[in-house]
Amino acid sequence: MTTPLPTPTPAHVGESPWRLLWRRFLRHRMAVAGAGVLAMFALAALSAPLVEAQLGGAGMSVDLLSRFQPPSAAHPLGTDELGRDILVRLLYGGRVSLFVGLTAAVAAACFGTVVGLLAGYHGGRFDAFLMRFTDGVIALPLLPLLIVLAAIDLNKLGVPAGVVASEHVSLYRIVAIVALVGWTTVARLVRGTALSLRERPFVRAAEAQGATAFRIMSVHILPNLASPIIVATTLSVGHVILLESVLSFLGLGIQPPIASWGNLLTNAQDFILDRPLLGFYPGFLIFVTVIAFNFLGDGLQDALDPRAIERRR
C-alpha cells in the first residue's frame, strides 16, 4: 500500500532552500563579517568570569591604590578611576548590553507581531483603530518619553518593595520600557503582509474548512511572516542597544554597580579630559556591535527576500 518515495538525490531536487539561503547570505560580505564580530563579542562576554579569574579574580573590586594604571599584564587595558580592571568591566558591560538588546528586541517583536496579526487579519474598524494607535505611538518623541518612564517610582505602581530594591530591577525595567515603545515597526510590517495574505487562496481554503481565526493566524499566516519579522528584529537589536546605552548614560537605565556600556561612559565622562581612552572603549564597542547588527540585518534581508521588505526603523 505505502510505497516508499524514492529518495531525492541532489540531482533531482537541486539546491535546498536552506543552502540557497546560506549561499545568498555568504555573498553579503559585510553581513558575514558582522555575524563573525557578534559571535566573537558574545563569546568574550560569556567568558567574562574566566577572564576575571585569569587576571587574579580581582577585576571588579575597588582598589584605590591603583587608580588609572596604564595597560599591563595584570590589567590589559589598565584600570579606571576606582582601580577596577577596564577589560573585565567592559566584558561584564557587554553581557548586559547584549542581553538587554536581544531580550527587548524579541519582546517588542512578539508584541508587535500580535498587534499586527490581529489588525491585518481582522481588518476593518479594528484595524483602523489599532493602526491609528500605532501611528500615535510612532509620532511621540521617544527619548523624552523614555526618560519619564525610566523615572517612574515602582513603589507607586504597586511593585513589591523587595523587588524594587533588588539589584537587577533596572535590567528588567529597561527591557520592559524598550519593549513598550519598540513594537511599532514590526506591527506595521506584519499588518501589511497579513492584509495581503488573508486574501490568498490557501487562507480562503482554510476558512472554508472551518478553521478558527486563531488557527489561521498561527498556522497559515504567521510562518509566511517569518522572514520580515526576523529581519526587522535583527535591525532593531542595534537600535535597542543604542537606546539602552543612552538611557544608562543619562543615569536612568542600568544602575551601577552593574556595568553596562552606557553607564561605563557616564563615569568616563568625568575624566574625559585626562583619560579620553576610558571613554573611548565603551562607546567604540557599542558602535561596532550596533553596526554589526545592522549589517547582519541587511544581509539577512537580501538573503531572505530581496524585495519584500522595506527597510524601516
Partner: peptide
Amino acid sequence: AFAGISVPSFWLGLMLIVVFAV
C-alpha cells in the same frame, strides 16, 4: 551611512569634544 546610523551620538559628541575642544 551605516556608520552614521550605528554611532551612539552621545559618544560621538564626547569624542568631538576631546578632539576639537581639548
